[in-house]
Computed example of a mutant assay.
Amino acid sequence: MTEETRMPGIGRLLAAQIVYQARLLAGGRAIIIGVGLPVLLLIASQGRHTDTAADTAAAAGYATFGLTLTAWNTYGVRLVAARESGVLKRWRATPLPRWCYFLGRILATVVVAAIAGAATVAAAALLFHTRVTVSGALAALVVFILGACAWAATATALTAVIPTIEAAAPTCMAVYFPVIVISGVFGSISEPSWLTTIAEYLPAQPLIHALTTALGHTAGQPWLPTRDVLVLAAWAVAGLALAITTFRWEPHRPAQRRGVRPQRVPDRGIA
């Protein structure tokens, strides 16, 4: 292979893929919804909060909302659309390693989703003087990355059972909204107790709790709650493992029913 035709290194390929996918994901309505909607809800909710702890919890909840909107809904719908339109099939035929495309797409989603969550926290700090320390910001960044990985990996696994582009958004939203509602994104839910217990093991409530702890971090306290980090890590690993085994590169093709084959009638001529 000559110098002119030699492929770039894996590092350059992966970096280029991340930049390319991030530009696609951050364009248009995705970043507007992921950033604008949580910030508007945060502004509208400020009249109900009277103390610093409530402000921090609200900022964490709406930042989680922005992050998950991007890492779950926007990412999942776009992935199904790319598969059903044949984009993934064409990418698969290129010299780019499959894992490089796959990882680049997820990492790009993590970057954009983390930016969406951070924008909500920044709005809370600027508009409502929510106190965020340097150590708290660093801990929050770790939570954003881990949470976005968990949601994006799980969304990748879900795409295997979504057959069409038209079904992508309804399916993602049907799974998404019950999870974030019972997890307390829009306010805590204490009853029934069995529902709150379930929410503790879903990827939204641990994300909110870990982010609240990170933003309220003070000297002498642990950066992040271990249990929440383990739950998010488990969702990320399980989602990625399931995605690897079930992911589809080819578009779904509806099964075609075979018609009844007409019987051949011998040509006997005209009597």
Rank of each mutant, 00 (worst) to 15 (best):
I182F: 09
I180T: 11
R257C: 09
A15E: 00
G11N: 05
A16I: 04
I162W: 02
E166F: 05
R92T: 06
P163C: 09
A174S: 14
T197D: 01
R248M: 02
E191L: 12
V110C: 10
V231M: 08
F177V: 05
L41V: 06
A81T: 14
R258Y: 10
A243I: 11
R83T: 03
T94D: 08
A219V: 14
T133E: 00
L107R: 03
W235N: 07
P38I: 11
A113I: 04
G36S: 11
T218M: 08
A82Y: 14
A137T: 04
S190C: 07
R258W: 10
I32A: 15
S183T: 11
A60M: 00
G184H: 04
P192H: 03
M7T: 03
I18W: 01
E166G: 02
R92D: 11
L232C: 02
E3A: 15
T154F: 15
T212D: 05
T226C: 04
A160I: 00
T226A: 15
A137H: 00
H209T: 13
W151C: 07
M173I: 12
T109D: 09
A119S: 15
R248G: 01
C149S: 07
Q205P: 10
V181I: 15
T120G: 02
L41D: 00
A16G: 15
R83F: 04
G269H: 08
G216Y: 01
L67K: 03
A63W: 08
V87W: 06
P38L: 10
A113S: 06
F247S: 07
L41F: 15
A57G: 03
A15G: 09
A59D: 07
T218G: 13
Q256D: 09
I244M: 12
N73L: 14
A122D: 01
L69R: 00
H252L: 05
V161L: 15
A108V: 03
N73S: 11
Q256T: 14
Y20S: 15
A157D: 06
V142I: 15
A57L: 11
F102L: 14
L42C: 06
T74F: 15
W235R: 07
G269M: 10
A139H: 09
G76P: 04
Y75V: 10
T52H: 14
P97Q: 04
L215A: 09
V121P: 01
